[in-house]
């Protein structure tokens, strides 16, 4: 990306920010520039699309997000244990929330995909809670704004390498958390090991994955 383009992008997108925040944005833009060109453009576009959407309310633009994210969110939710119908319902609900909340999206605080993923995850947890018949009331207010940005833009290839490099048991723990949606206690029962070992295995795995994807310290 040329200097001009980048400045233009920053001016239009982040015109309200002060210098320190622009530095954060620059780092984010540069992180995404390290990726393969098409990927970088894609991730950056989503960020821009969200910012644009807040102003223009352009439905066509929104449908670009929808087409990209809906199958991904659906597979995420089905993995978590939602049936086909519920998964689709939650995907629709999540993306409608995205449409409504674009004005509260802060490109300085989260990547577009993180933000959208977070909305879907919170809806899923809310839905679990609502299944209980004696619930007092639904709770839709998990923290969304005010998040510290992750400077790590996850490169799927690098993550795969990192997963492959994990000892088998740690990889299995990660798999059970992300793909099977299991709690520490359930994993301990499944794998016939103490909860303490489940937690320490996950801690180690998390550390390694964070280092490999460029987050963490």
């Amino acid at each position: 990306m040329t200097e001009d383009l980048r400045n233009n992008f920053l001016r239009t997108t982040y015109c309200v920010l002060d210098n320190s925040k622009i530095m954060v944005c620059l780092r984010l833009v540069e992180t995404s520039m390290e990726l393969k060109p098409d990927q970088a453009v894609q991730k950056q576009d989503f960020r821009q699309i969200l910012v644009e959407l807040a102003k223009s309310r352009d439905k066509k633009l929104f449908m670009q997000l929808y087409d990209y994210f809906s199958p991904r969110l659906k597979s995420f939710l089905v993995r978590k244990g939602a049936n086909e119908e519920l998964a689709e319902e939650l995907v629709q609900e999540a993306l409608l929330s995205v449409w409504r909340k674009t004005s509260s999206y802060d490109p300085d605080k989260a990547t577009a995909s993180t933000w959208i993923f977070r909305i879907a995850r919170n809806l899923w947890i809310d839905r679990l809670r609502k299944e209980k018949p004696d619930m007092l009331s639904p709770l839709n207010s998990y923290p969304e704004a005010g998040y510290t940005p992750s400077l790590a833009v996850c490169d799927s290839g690098r993550l795969k390498e990192a997963m492959d490099a994990l000892p088998q048991q740690q990889a299995q723990l990660v798999y059970k958390v992300y793909y099977e949606g299991k709690s520490h206690r359930e994993i301990a029962e499944d794998m016939d090991m103490p909860i303490g070992s489940v937690k320490s295995g996950l801690r180690l795995a998390f550390d390694k994955l964070r280092v490999r994807i460029g987050g963490g310290s």
Partner: peptide, 9 residues
Amino acid sequence: ADTEQIGLG
């Protein structure tokens, strides 16, 4: 935020 990035990956 890092866990979310991993999840997306």
